[in-house]
Design a protein around this nucleic acid. Structure first.
Lengths: 101, 101
DNA sequence: AAAATCAATCGTTCATTTGCGATATACAAT
DNA sequence: ATTGTATATCGCAAATGAACGATTGATTTT
């Protein structure tokens, strides 16, 4: 069993978000709800293998999921993880520091 | 002048948050408001040089600032950047995907 | 069965990140 | 002036990440 501290959990999500191409993919999925890999390779000027690799990282982080609809794969945001990440980040930023002089 | 897209901006903040030690430092600063490097090196079991390096990255990202109070340095969260990061992440997560069947 | 399509994976190269000990810097105390 | 203290910076080694072309695998179409 993989024990993960809160720090590690935030860091792991942050890492998934730490590349412009991955942000772009996620933004696209947010707007479109779902889309095929092909659409992304049109949209983003990078090699197909590179985009596929970024998709893998987002999938490994749990933020997206892929439905195999042969011969294509439809990617969507993973609602559950998305909500969790949202909650975690907002909790992290929420607690305002106590201002002392 | 450094042109930065929205994707790059999010990714840059996310990168700063993508390491457990940096999350830990920020959490600590959030609670304590401010503290000296020494306090952090007590708190976190890593070499002093390593922590100093993580502090530098957080500083470069703009998330913290250091006041030189010889012979020590007092680090605080940079309120302005903190609020900005908070806003950027929440906007990013906010827009719910349209669920289609 | 052969060809075509879509996307993942492999293998490689190059760049960046991480962690550390050693050293340097800046200032205070003696 | 010397010593001590707190912290940054340097230089290195190891690990990880990014990008790409080529290949493979799965499925449809012909």
């Amino acid at each position: 069993m993989t024990y993960t501290t809160r720090e590690e959990e935030i860091a792991r999500y942050a890492k998934a978000l730490s590349h412009p191409v991955r942000i772009r993919i996620l933004s696209f999925l947010e707007k479109q709800s779902c889309c095929f890999t092909g659409k992304l390779t049109e949209e983003i000027p990078m090699a197909q293998s590179t985009i596929s690799q970024h998709l893998k990282e987002l999938k490994d982080a749990g933020l997206i999921q892929g439905d195999v609809l042969p011969p294509r794969i439809k990617y969507c945001i993973n609602q559950k993880a998305w909500e969790e990440a949202k909650k975690i980040f907002s909790a992290f930023f929420e607690q305002e520091p106590i201002v002392t002089k």
